[in-house]
Design a protein around this nucleic acid. Structure first.
Lengths: 240, 240
DNA sequence: CGCCAGGTTGATTTCGCTCAAGCAATGTGG
DNA sequence: CCACATTGCTTGAGCGAAATCAACCTGGCG
């Protein structure tokens, strides 16, 4: 019975293995119980919205399984994929901590399970345990660092280089090693989204993919990618 | 005597008018006295380094007068100007709060006066007054928002549009209205730096400036810009 | 079955980068 | 004071990369 609960993340915060790897690991057992009592877990279908830009922040979300995309839309209606969140990641802490409206949208990329924790509960926990606030600070700091690194990437690299960088990141998350030493990736997002992530048109990305196949770097088929020699990707980003 | 101290920012935190507009305004009078006792004020010459990427974080800095540039350097040695800081802004809080090394460099853009507050003092103040930590959280959150907005800008806009956006931002900070309704800007940074901010080569920026002059939008002469009709700039960024 | 979103491919044009030369302002050592 | 290097900026020519416009394919899905 106990084993069963441990094997089912999202059922109870106390036994949730993911907690060890995110902001909540600084909480005491008593505080965790409060968290477990207040959190609501629910499933999302692929493409379902978690929250939308402009709406108030009611609380924060904790990814249990699946993946989620954060999208930002600019004045002209262009939508850009900012980040992908994975199990253990906390979502929507920004608007919450400041009591602001959502500045971007979040959407489930596939079937996902996500816990929701109400604003009041988070505030209460942060007052009881100041280390929690520091954890969020650390988290937001890393996000800012990522954003700055992407800024210099966008400023200096070619579209091809940017895409290779993206592909390497996706490989780290979604890659499975094949017996012959190659890596097989199941892409969680569409090509349009990948194009938006590197700031290119989707037609351009299509051509870049074609050239990568010509050069024997990788083979693309739908959302499945096979990177022949992962090292060749690493080397590619050394030049330009 | 008291008036004289009020008229001289950087001499004493208690009378510093800038404090009303930054993170420190949540401190009690007693805490401000601690701050005033610990802070060291000093002048910087134009171009002088405040801190450099890779070095440890000894404390944080508070701009009193002048302006400072935050620069990030990527693997290829390209340097990108990330942000400009102005009087009242706090500098270098990121590395400090996490006890990390500096991830970017900061440098005075002109003759500036900047206060330094030691790491230990900040930690002590944050423990005494939890609201201070929340202020830094708010600050870092806004920075992250700026970075995300720049990301979608870089992804979707042309170099010309990006430069017009930059010019509008600089106008808000450095513009002076002329009697004929035009705005005169004294640029704080070189064209190379402006080019890096929009992710373009400096030659390209030079051509963009030429085209803006052809179109009668603005006149450039050294570091002085005259925007004929500020409204025309606003309108320009509506299309494309 | 037709419709539609997502993806590919082609033709054409525009934009921005590279390489290169030249120029003005500033600094420097003799 | 001059010859000289240095730095920041501009301008030109040529080229390559990427955007645009368009046609077409493909696999769901009502």
């Amino acid at each position: 019975m106990v084993e069963q609960r441990q094997a089912m993340p999202g059922a109870n915060c106390l036994e949730c293995q993911l907690r060890q790897r995110n902001e909540w690991h600084v909480l005491t057992e008593k505080e965790i119980k409060l968290l477990a009592q207040a959190r609501k877990s629910r499933r999302y279908r692929a493409g379902e919205a978690i929250f939308t830009a402009g709406e108030p922040s009611y609380g924060i979300y904790c990814m249990v399984s699946g993946a989620a995309a954060m999208r930002q839309v600019d004045a002209e209606g262009n939508t850009v994929l900012i980040q992908i969140s994975y199990p253990g990641d906390t979502l929507g802490y920004r608007g919450l901590l400041l009591g602001e409206r959502r500045r971007f949208s979040a959407e489930a990329l596939g079937p996902s399970r996500i816990c929701f924790i109400d604003q009041q509960v988070v505030k209460m926990l942060m007052e009881r345990n100041p280390a929690l606030g520091l954890q969020f600070l650390r988290r937001i700091n890393n996000d800012l660092d990522d954003a700055h690194n992407k800024l210099v990437q966008n400023a200096t690299l070619s579209n091809r280089s940017k895409f290779v960088h993206l592909l390497l990141n996706l490989m780290n998350r979604h890659g499975h090693p094949a017996p012959d030493g190659s890596q097989v990736i199941n892409l969680p997002i569409s090509r349009r989204d990948m194009a938006s992530m590197i700031g290119a048109r989707h037609e351009t990305l299509s051509r870049i993919i074609g050239r990568l196949e010509e050069d024997g770097v990788a083979r693309f088929s739908g959302r499945t990618v096979c990177v022949n020699r992962p090292h060749s990707l690493m080397e590619e980003i050394r030049f330009s």
